[in-house]
Amino acid sequence: MAGLSGCMGGGGGTTVSILTWTGYDAVNDQVEEALEDVSLEISVADGSANMFSTVNAGGGEEYDVVIPNNEYVPRFIDADLAAPVDMDVMTNFDSLYPTFQSAAEGQFADGGDVYGVPVQFGWYAYGYDSSKLPEDHEHSYDVLFSEEYAGVDLTGSITLYDGYYKSIMATGLALGYTDAFEGDTVSFTDEQLTTIEETLIDFKPNLLGFIHDEETLTQDYQNGNIIASFANRSTHVGIMNDVESVDFSQPAEEELTWFEGAVVTAGSSNKEAAFRVLNEYISPETGAALSENRNIMNTSQAAMDNIEAESLQIEPGVLDGMIPFKPAEQDEAWIEMFERVKNA
């Protein structure tokens, strides 16, 4: 199918077919060893939208598990493509951070049943070069929209995420539009969207650019081109492994969190085995290995307690008050606006 990479897997017994992101195959051997009668077949999709369209077009019988980002799980539920979570099999569910248990029982629930399992997570804020911007600066999204901050000239040294969804939400948070995030969708008013667009266009000359890929950001930090960059924490974890002076901020404003929500498809003929695999992804040992291989945090506190990599360590309190990704109420308007910003 279009947008899918080749399959990766092996072993014997029941084959569980998974449509997901890159990196999950790194723990195939570990999962198959723990679940002796299960083998895995991993396919990589080009984003959550591709996962949904693939399953919605009939792939629900081809794939036992799909792991999109959390804002897409309700689409699977509404389209009757997701099976209720078998909590008798998901014995590690209680080890999830309370934030993600609540998310599963809220965003992933319908009619009293839960239909998705949070597996890995991250959040969006800004990284910065601590050799130029002091660590003790007032951590705020204002950094991203300032020509000077804490006495440091930021002109031409800031990058925003090259994607309409994240950059528009970050700008909205910087402008204080937190009310827009309270419902099931992100619902900026027309006036707020106009102000967001004007803010991005007015500040665009001060940007180095809209960039999101780790390799480019790493090179620009190494070359001294960037002082602050708005991107995924997992992206910054990779950068921090290569550039010692880069740190990740915890701004005073709310942060935007995403998490991968695993769904067992309604059409799967291997539901019990599929849930056993998901249970293993959030187990203390395999969950930790998955996180260390992907540079992404695990939703299981027991798994996180097993991780040694300093760059992946977090304080549990960091999750308090985070805003989970939600669909944009005016998605097409956001897309059109971001194109105008980039072309301005």
Rank of each mutant, 00 (worst) to 15 (best):
A2I: 14
G3Q: 11
L4C: 12
M8T: 15
G11D: 12
T14K: 12
S17N: 15
I18T: 00
W21K: 14
D25H: 12
A26Y: 15
A26D: 15
Q30Y: 10
Q30W: 07
Q30G: 06
L40C: 06
E41M: 09
I42D: 15
S43E: 15
S43R: 15
S48C: 02
N56L: 10
G59K: 01
G60E: 12
Y63I: 02
V65I: 15
P68C: 00
Y72S: 08
R75Q: 13
L81K: 06
L81V: 03
A83I: 07
P84C: 06
M87P: 12
D94Q: 13
F100G: 03
Q101H: 08
A103H: 14
E105D: 12
F108N: 05
D113N: 05
V114D: 07
Y115G: 01
Y115L: 06
G116D: 02
G116C: 01
V119F: 04
Q120Y: 02
Q120E: 14
F121L: 04
A125D: 14
S131F: 06
E135C: 00
S140T: 13
V143N: 07
E147Y: 01
E148C: 01
A150T: 05
G151A: 04
L154N: 00
L154Y: 04
L160C: 01
G163N: 14
Y164A: 11
Y165L: 09
A180E: 04
A180L: 03
T185R: 11
T185I: 01
Q192W: 04
T195F: 00
T195I: 04
I196V: 06
K204S: 10
L208N: 15
H212C: 00
T218I: 03
D220M: 09
N232T: 09
G238C: 03
I239Q: 01
N241D: 15
D242I: 00
E253K: 02
E254W: 03
E255S: 09
L256N: 06
F259I: 02
T265G: 08
T265Y: 07
A266D: 15
G267T: 00
S268T: 02
S269H: 13
N270V: 09
K271V: 01
A274Q: 08
V277W: 06
V277C: 07
I282D: 02
I282W: 06
E285P: 08
E285V: 10
E285N: 03
T286S: 09
G287W: 09
A289V: 05
L290S: 05
S291F: 05
M297D: 11
T299W: 08
A303D: 03
N306A: 12
N306Y: 10
E308C: 01
A309P: 14
A309F: 07
L312R: 04
Q313N: 10
Q313W: 04
L319I: 02
D320R: 02
G321M: 00
M322A: 01
I323V: 12
F325Y: 15
E329I: 03
Q330Y: 14
V341D: 04
N343V: 04
